[in-house]
Amino acid sequence: MRQVVSPLDYSAWGARLGLLLVGLIAFLIAVNLGALQIHHSDWLQVFNPQNAYEGASYVLWNIRIPRALLAIMVGAALGVAGALAQSLFRNPLADPGLLGVSAGASCSVAIGIVMFDGFRFIPAEELRIWAIPFFAFLGAIAVCFCLDYVARVVSPGSIAGLLLTGIALNALAGAVIGLCTYLANDEQLRSFTFWSLGSLASARWMMVGVLFGALAIGWVWIRTLLQDLNALTLGENIANHLGVDVSHLRTKVIVLVATLSGLAVAWCGMIGFIGLMAPNLVRICLGSDQKRAVPYSAGVGAILLLIADTIARTIAIPAEVPVGIFTALMGGPLFLILLRQYRSRLD
């Protein structure tokens, strides 16, 4: 029997190294740019107990670095959520924002803030910070199950049906959010608007830690599903013939997509198009094998959001432009290109 030896995969190592290098450079640029000049010595000031919390060193370690890391984590979460949603719905145009998952999360947060009066019933401030992620998750998962039902029962296999459902859910969520803002009192309105305008400005080390933990745990789970997701690419029936339990796989992926996009939305509001851009860029460059597409989507999503956020906060110093503007500026044209490429499959 002839033994087939696979050659060392240089392209995979090249992609990995390249991504790491680009990420590192983007990170260094991000933390050095800003209203306040950072000197090399400020990096080490944090280890000096006398003036650890002063001046440039404070800005660096408690504002710039957490913010850059949060951008990386949120971008990675959105990239993975997008890649998973696309493979679940077997549709390169699926994106948590486009499908209404983010809007569902946002809508649920609005209801929570208005109905529970800014979560005032939770006594401790440290616990209150968790109320928004929890509500975001509830909204995201509700929309995910709704989309899943539509994708299987109402209009099976139809890309147009799925995207139209996304539009309908977005409109519905928008209406409920509108109703909530109408009913809200001044303080609630401020609280919700502050959140939904969304930026990475409120970054804290705690948020970075939570998202990192969620991504790490998620990744351990996701990597066991990747080959099954490849099988799902062949179609639901074929995946079943090949021994994949499709309904279980579906539930797992929905929970993952909802958790990741819920967490991403939770602390920094709606950031669109990263979940669409990252996986599709990866697919164009490296092919559609999910074993590659999902992890690289995390890396590319992280870098894209880091770059977008760096531009957003430095282009008009001292003012800050919402980061969503730059992700949409990059994502909108890409979406149109994809639409053109896949137009034959839109019916």
Binding site: S87, R90, P92, T233, G235, I238, H241, D245, G287, S288
Partner: peptide, 24 residues
């Protein structure tokens, strides 16, 4: 039978299918 058990003894060649992404 579970899907996995069935897949050990039964293969299916379907009529025509479309693949969502371009796999090798």
């Amino acid at each position: 039978y579970s899907s996995a058990q069935l897949s050990q003894i039964r293969g299916v060649l379907p009529q025509n299918t479309q693949i969502a992404f371009g796999l090798v």
